[in-house]
Amino acid sequence: MKEGVKLNNLEKLFECIKKIAKRNPEKILLPNTFFIFGSVKYDESKCIACLTCYENCPLGAYDVERKFDLSMIKKIDLSKTYWKRAIIYQLIMEIAVKDLEGYVEVPEGLPGYGSVKHNEDLCISCRKCVDLCPTGALSFECEFDMKKIWR
């Protein structure tokens, strides 16, 4: 655990597990209702940078990345993305004379483009962001990475 968020009880729990564990399992599967453990997964291709997660995270575990990944446009299945995004991506592909690569800077205060960065060390797995995410870019994995304990 990093400094900044000190969850004493959690650390104590980790110590206990370390003591009693005989082997070192990679991952353990948890029941869906089991909070605290588990991790948030972020899929950048689905994200629309509405910043709902950033604004609602109780611990500030999200950072705004003011960069729009151009190469992502090629990877996305346009028929599955949102209507206007598909139009914009299609137009960009059609008018591009260069290969779609690199990042485009997004001006500050322009929501809808760019991405967020999830800082796992600050996350307490409260799942608020996952519940609020309108696009399904954030999902919750009920697996717990045991490496976290051994670290």
Binding site: L70, V97, K98, E101, G102, V104, V106, P107, L110, Y113
Partner: peptide
């Protein structure tokens, strides 16, 4: 000002894609 930001963003895209 909202328009200015969007235009700035599209300008950045145009630069990257070669227009």
């Amino acid at each position: 000002l909202k328009a200015e930001k969007r235009v700035k963003f599209v300008k950045n895209i145009l630069d990257k894609i070669g227009l």
